[in-house]
Every structure is written in C-alpha cells, then in structure tokens.
Write a protein that binds this DNA or RNA. Sequence first.
DNA 1: GGCGCCTACTTAACCGCTTAAGTACCCGTT
DNA 2: AACGGGTACTTAAGCGGTTAAGTAGGCGCC
Lengths: 348, 348
Amino acid sequence: MSDEGISGRTTIVDIAKRAGVSTSAVSYALNGKPGVSQRTRDRILQIASELEWVPDAAARTLSLSRTDTVGLVLARDARFLASEGFFMEFIAGVETELSKTNRAMLLQVVSDPERELATYRRWRSELRVDGVVLVDLRRDDPRVELVQRIGLPAVAVADPSLTNGLMTVWTDDATGARGSVRHLHEMGHRSIARISGSPHLAHVAIRDAAFIDECEARGVRPLVLGGDFSGPTAEQLTREVLSMQGAPYTAIVYDSGLTAVAGLTAARQLGVSVPDDLNIIGWDDSPICTVTNPPISVMSYDVVSYGETVGRVFTALLDGAEPAAHVGGVPTLHRRGSTWSEPRPPAG
Amino acid sequence: MSDEGISGRTTIVDIAKRAGVSTSAVSYALNGKPGVSQRTRDRILQIASELEWVPDAAARTLSLSRTDTVGLVLARDARFLASEGFFMEFIAGVETELSKTNRAMLLQVVSDPERELATYRRWRSELRVDGVVLVDLRRDDPRVELVQRIGLPAVAVADPSLTNGLMTVWTDDATGARGSVRHLHEMGHRSIARISGSPHLAHVAIRDAAFIDECEARGVRPLVLGGDFSGPTAEQLTREVLSMQGAPYTAIVYDSGLTAVAGLTAARQLGVSVPDDLNIIGWDDSPICTVTNPPISVMSYDVVSYGETVGRVFTALLDGAEPAAHVGGVPTLHRRGSTWSEPRPPAG
DNA sequence: GGCGCCTACTTAACCGCTTAAGTACCCGTT
DNA sequence: AACGGGTACTTAAGCGGTTAAGTAGGCGCC
C-alpha cells in the first residue's frame, strides 16, 4: 500500500532503494548468482516478496532474448482433423509442464497453411516465442523445412519419419493399428475394413499401411477406404462397405470418434446390428463414444499425458537437449459395447 | 543476404545506418509521425521493407507499455462446459479480428478457479497481456471483481446481469430458450421438459428461467431437471422424464449437443421413438448432432462470428471505448430430424 | 607493511524502440 | 540586418531488466 500506487508497477529499482543497494546487486540476488553476501541476498529476497515484485516479461525478453513463450498454430479446420476435445486436453497437458518453468503458450488459429508459415516467420522476427509446437504434419510438410531454415526451435508432434531430425514426440499409430487388427482377428473376424481420415495426413497413411500389413500377416481380408474425417463421408463409405458383394466385412475401424458414430448410424439404418453383425472401433476417445448405443470401442491413449510429454520435451529442447524422437503414447484398445466381448468362430 | 547474417535480427539501427539518419528519424517515419520529410520517409520505408524489418515485440512493449496480446484462461474441464469444438471456433473468430490490429492471443488452461485468478494477477504483474477475455461466468464470479480491482481490461462473455458494468458480449440465451418453447408449442407440444447443464453456470440459470416463464405464458406444462453437461447424467435424467407417471412429456430440450445425443440414446433404449413419440432439441451446433439417426435439431448461433464480435469489442476497449453490452448472437432453431416438421394436434 | 587476492559490492553499457527536448537551417518580415 | 517561426532533423533519456568491468575494503602472507 505504501510503496506502490503512484508509479504503478514495482521494479527492481524500488527494491534497490529499500535495500540501499544498487539494482545490479538486486538482480544478482534475485537470480541466485554470486556477487552478494548471504545476508544481503536474504534481505533483498525478503523485500522483493514484501513488495510482491514480479519481473517484467518484456524487459527480461529484451535483455535475455528469451520470451518464455511457446507458440502453437492450429489450422482453422483442426476440429475435423482431431477428434473433439483433443486439443483442449493436449494443450492442457502441454501447459501443465510448461508452467513448471513459468512458460506460457501463444495460440493462433489460422485459415490456411500459407498463413501458418507466415505466422512462424513473424513470430520469429518479432521474437515473440522461443519455439513452436508443430501438429498435424503432412508428408513433406513445408513447416519442417521452414523452422529449420529460420532456426526456430520446434517440437514436431508426428511420426519420426516425417520430421527430418527435428525434436519429435509421437504416438505409435502403426502399433495401434496392428493392435486393432490383432484384437479383431482373435475375436474371429476374417474380413476387416478401415474407413480412414484424410489420406494426405501422415498419421493416416501410417495407420493404413500398418493395417494392411497386419491383416495380410494374419490372413485377414482387408479393405481401406479413404475418407475425410467428416460424418457424411463416413456414413457414405460405411454404406458402401456394407452393401458390397461377397463375404461381408464383419468389422470396421474408423479414424476418429465422430466418424465411428456416423458409421454406427449408417449401419443401423441398413438394419445391420452392432455388435452382432458388425463390430466398430473408433480412434481417440471422446465423450460421444460413450453416449451411443452401443458405446463405441476405441483405440486411444492418454492425450493429457501426451501433451505433458510434449511440454517436457520442449523444456529440454530449450535447455539444449539434442533432438530425438520420444514416444508420447501408444494407442490401446478400450473395449466397449461395439465389439464382441468374446471370441466367435470365424464364419464360413 | 548482405546485411543480415552476423548480427541476426535487423533493427532500426540498421535502417538508420543505411539511410544515413538517426534512429529517431527512422522511428518517426515508421510510425507515420511528423518530423521527417516525405522524401526521407519514403526512403526509410523502402529500406525497411528491403531489409524485411519487423519490430521487436519486447522492445515495443517495454517502451509503450503495450503488449498487443490478449489473454484467455480456460478451466481444465471446459470441454464439458461448452460443446465440442466451441472453443476452436470461438478462438478462431476472436483471432480473425485481433489479427487485423496485429494482436495475438495468450492461452492458458488451468485446473481450478484459484489458479485462474492467480494467472490474471501474474499476467498483470508481468505485463504479459493488454487485457483478458472472461468466459463461462458464474453468479458472483470472483473474476469480475478481480479484474476490476487490479485494473486489467476485460471483455466478459456472459449475460450483462453478471458483469457489473464490464465490457460484455453476450448471446441472448433467454430469447433462445423462449424460441425453443415457442416452436415446440406451435408444433402442438403441451408438456415440455428441459434437462439443463450445471445450474451454477449463469447462462444455464437464465435459460431455465426463460424456459419456465415462456411455458407458463403459453399454458405449457414445464419440467426442469438440472444436470451437469455429462452424458451419463443426461441419460439418467432422460430415463426419469420418460418414465414419469401422468401425461407424458413429448419434447425435451437439452443444454448441449452431447447431452442431446445421450438423451436420444436413452429414449431409444426405452423404445421411445424420436421424433414420433418424443422431440429432442440440443444446444450449440456440432458435427455430432448431424451423425445420429435422426439428426438432432439444435438452438444455435454462429460461434465464429460470436468470437469475431468479441475480438472487435476488445479492440474497441483498448482504443478507449466505454464499457457496454454487445449482442454477439441470438440462438435460433436449426431444424433437423429430431423434431416434427409440421404441427400435430395436441394430444388429449 | 606492502603485496596480491578475495569478497561484495557499484558503475556503466546494453537489449530495441519511443519521444521530449534541443539545434541547425531556411524563409518571410519589418 | 536582426528576428520570429517553421521544418527537418539529432541528441539524449527512458522503459526494466542483465552483466561485464571496475573498485573499495578486509584478510592472509612472506
């Protein structure tokens, strides 16, 4: 009450005056650097906390060239790319870790990839962030090349095969896809379809390949249809799968929760019973997978802890850690009502 | 290529050298202020663009006490409070407007309200943001008092009755709630239930009151059951409504898309046909409302443009506009398959 | 008892940009 | 010819921190 007020914010000058020392002594004390006696250090710390001093972010940035901020750009239609709620949980996880080192997150939602690149360039020039998190990578994604060229520290959230040596955190989608096939095969399925998301997204392509490979290894008849993460397309493709000639597909694996729900609806409209005649597996857990009848089994992992890993890795990167690929999660099957609960003999 | 490199970033000193003037002349020219001739101004601008100069954010903040950043804090369980995708669209809208004045958005996801308050205090002390956007207000929300006390500019996204004179943007939930009742009444419904979200959220209470009021004005028999925005609770409450004694409720209005889907599932399990025996209306549009069978009618408004309004109002606020309440959207009915498409004579 | 060496500070420069205050010069006046 | 008043700049100070370089005083040591 007494010292603040007029000037507004309290600075290290205020602390220095009170303590009767120079501002550099204050700075040394506050940052735990040598150059001040223990007595003086304690006194300065005491005064700082009395005055509720907090360092000015801009001043720090200016002299340290460090912003304590990490940037995240999301493409406008990200809500189609990831299942509902994914980003909320992901961001929550990232921040849990970042806040431990007092870092914040700058978020930008853009309408197209070109603007995303421009945003990185601008952030870099303005020195607004210490680095960025890259999500939703595509094959030969221009962002990877850009951040490397302009020297913007980055953590890529994608399969290591796409990140050209950047620091990366990934989920083992291939193992997840194989796991879904394995489970269905063990339950007796011999014909399994997969209705995937946008094929130009790298993780989709990875799931596709692993799916087919695992099916072939097990003598299962596979089918992959490329969709776009939207409900109507998933419904349409589901109808196609279910009305094909020949031995029917008894299970369909989707690439999100939303598309799985759409598939369930389509099946019901065709009079196909889930799970009796058809098993359905979605990807990424979300509340909507639990409010359907039957609730939908999904391949998923803990998104919050995935984000936490990204936050930790980011902190390490800024502390000088060498780029490496870290596993942030392995999708595993969460069984619910849309899949058989025990093996059935293969038909035919 | 020639001038950058060694030092790294290009500053106004570089421009000044090239132009053979002082840095102040450069600053005046760059900011369109008087004090330089047109010739010199043009030359400086030319050089600046050749050098691809971008102002350093921290330096600007330090001398102007302005960050060009707005903060947004979301409570960790926000994904339950708003329907899926709401925040992505909302934030996209806000940023569309903010980016016009070259402002960015700092995002923090916290686990509890206490941390949210702490975040505002810290941002204020560190001078990290010019102001904040407040969402998901409760009655007597402590955030309103806090931002006013510490003098942090804020735009509250909530009903004006809750914001104590802060700059606010709101959706007319009361009119929306009345609209849902009006439509159902005109279709012939005479007993309408409402399964609402968490009653301690202000907008929920407002919808509750308007719902009951409009029902009474029309001689409709109302019922309001308070839920929590979760699927299981919505299913449970739906079962309760449908198994009550006496004249049945022929329509249920929910407070989100997710809970409406849950209600649809519960109804189906009880053998109640939608829309024949029961009409269902959700709130806030989202993809999941379109992938059910039938797709679900919702009360909704354009969330992106809602966000845009918030962005515009925020810009105005920082430019000195007086606090006022602005309407950002009025929920209207989007008719889909879960409600009758034409009036039926009231039963009984 | 003069030397060097710590320790515990202070002084001053710097980060990149803004802006009040000063200065040099030109022009039109009386 | 001295003077007032623009115009077009420059100088210098300041925003709030950090940090290299300087300095004063105390201590041990030969």
